[in-house]
Design a protein around this nucleic acid. Structure first.
Lengths: 333, 333
DNA sequence: CAATTTTTTGGAAGCGCTTCCAATTGTTGG
DNA sequence: CCAACAATTGGAAGCGCTTCCAAAAAATTG
């Protein structure tokens, strides 16, 4: 593998000049530029990225820490981030924290030690305080799917309250009055906000929030199913199940069918997130769109703008959920 | 950030000694080891991974190139790889080729230029010849989901033919005689092999392969739906649709329902891959298990063993598909 | 106990590049 | 045509670590 020395020798210019054309510096004459490029070509020169990093203290790599690498959500997110970074010649180093506090901290250290120029995180186990502290460090950090007011320009989040509100409002508009709600784990910010929105819509329609028609799940499929079992036992009739995410909605659908109920005839179901398999379900799931692709892309752009000083980038932090109407909700007379 | 110099000074030993304890070299006295460790501790020393890479010509990073980062398949794969590498203190640099030849080649160069110690690829657009040539280079390459005989110890693959055979055999055993087949794109090795297995099972049962009950899809959901439309138009009755992957199977289910057919009452459906949403479908999809997690893990282990010389690793290249019986197939009298 | 072997240490040369600084060359205007 | 300045170039020091080599220290042997 040819080095910059050989290029310099072949082109008959100094090391510095070669480095300058390599980095597109100003103040290089057209002539030397040509000579250098020709030499590089002839030698099939490929810069050594590690050496560049060491000398420049820039690794051109961005760390991405997520709870899990699999699942319908994170894949989309990673994909968007990678596309955006790659276009800019940067690359993604990914790692998973598995929603375990220590493991998430390790992941962050791992990425920092790897000299990542910036880090994107989407995790639940670390406290706001920890993240705030982290963001004071020398490695820039951006946060996906979470709003921490103290560092809100580095957060990319959705208006979960609004999403919860819109979902419930729509169902009420379809004539439903007895609503069951299966929430995410309430120690998570998003789960809480979605529930708040639900309550607001209820309030607005003069409907009461009924504790007996509430179940706290964990955002995983199983808890949707279990939730339905639980709710049905109460013997309080409901005509719609509002689920705080699509995974639980799919579990809920299974649960309802276990009890020989048809969807949406006997019970309507709505989800949240609009993960891609919402289409695969039967009936197709009505849900709230969560623009994770767009948000992930923005987080990458924030880094391009603030870390790599790309100037032509627009960054938006707050996103809006949108209702996606499909087949799982019935109009009630 | 403290450097090795400061550690060396504080501990009162030479640079080399510090480096030696850092790398767990033999021939370091217990005494200096203690002194060095104490100094590191006191300074909160963190080795600079870039400098290490430059000096040692080892980056401790493994490149992963996949067609896409999203979708049910790749997420699982990435997850398994990351877990395995992370345990060994290595990390994954991921990039996507989007099934476009040039883009996949770029991806490979990108990873090589990044000084990856090895590369894991799971892609379709590159020819066997290209991959063989690539594997002669100085960066080790392992191949997932593909058998290239010339370099088969670096390939991790499943017996697709057997999978195709077992799926069809099972359906035949359930009494079905008129079988429709929706294949993947036949320029892909796996699609072809699965079809071969299907034909073998047919043969064995003295059933004829019927061109009119065959449709070549593209492994995506839509083509399952389109395939069913296409097949139904032929007015040749069939009682089971065999799909070469789960995505198409889910499309086929949708297609059948569009035509007011019930599954499995009016038509049985079987998939292939056992992606996680096969459980979410209604009815739950009977399918062939594809042990992508296990395979991905093995590919990572191969690298640990052959590149990083871990000795305690067992590597297996060939995997076996298994029938997963769920609800989408009916027994015919 | 001296001679020999083995273990432990330190010195120094890189790894391939960036970047500061000073020197050189070219340009402009009076 | 020369001073004054700007554009361009080269030299050299370093980025933080690994690793080879030889020297020093410790252990072993007859």
């Amino acid at each position: 593998m040819a080095t910059i020395y050989e290029v310099s020798a072949l082109a008959g210019v100094s090391l510095s000049s070669v480095s300058r054309v390599l980095n597109n510096h100003e103040h290089v004459s057209e002539k030397t530029k040509q000579k250098v490029m020709a030499a590089m070509d002839e030698l099939g020169y490929r810069p050594n990225s590690v050496a560049r990093s060491l000398a420049s203290n820039r690794s051109n790599s961005i760390g991405v820490l997520v709870s899990e690498l699999h699942g319908p959500f994170y894949g989309e997110m990673l994909s968007s981030i990678e596309i955006e970074l790659r276009k800019a010649g940067k690359h993604a180093v990914v790692t998973a924290g598995h929603s375990v506090e220590q493991s998430e901290k390790d992941g962050i250290n791992f990425l920092i030690d790897r000299n990542c120029d910036a880090i994107i995180i989407l995790i639940d186990s670390l406290s706001d305080e920890f993240v705030i502290e982290l963001s004071k460090g020398s490695t820039p950090v951006v946060i996906l799917n979470r709003l921490i007011p103290e560092i809100k320009d580095k957060c990319f989040y959705i208006d979960n309250e609004l999403g919860g509100y819109l979902a419930t409002k729509y169902i009420i508009e379809q004539g439903h009055k007895n609503l069951a709600y299966i929430s995410g784990p309430l120690f998570k910010q998003d789960a809480n906000e979605r529930l708040d929105g639900h309550k607001r819509a209820l309030n607005e329609a003069n409907l009461k929030f009924d504790d007996e028609l509430f179940y706290e799940g964990d955002f995983l499929t199983t808890s949707g199913r279990v939730g339905i079992d639980h709710l049905l036992k109460k013997n309080k009739p409901f005509t719609a199940a509002i689920c705080a995410n699509d995974e639980m909605a799919s579990g809920a659908m299974k649960g309802l069918r276990d009890h020989n109920m048809l969807i949406p005839k006997d019970c309507s179901v709505i989800g949240f997130d609009n993960v891609y398999f919402a289409n695969y379900l039967h009936p197709e799931l009505t849900t709230m769109n969560y623009p994770i692709n767009e948000m992930a892309k923005m987080s990458a752009q924030w880094i391009l703008k603030n870390v790599y000083k790309h100037s032509d980038v627009f960054v938006n932090n707050k996103f809006t959920p949108e209702l996606i109407i499909r087949e799982s909700i019935k109009k009630v007379e």
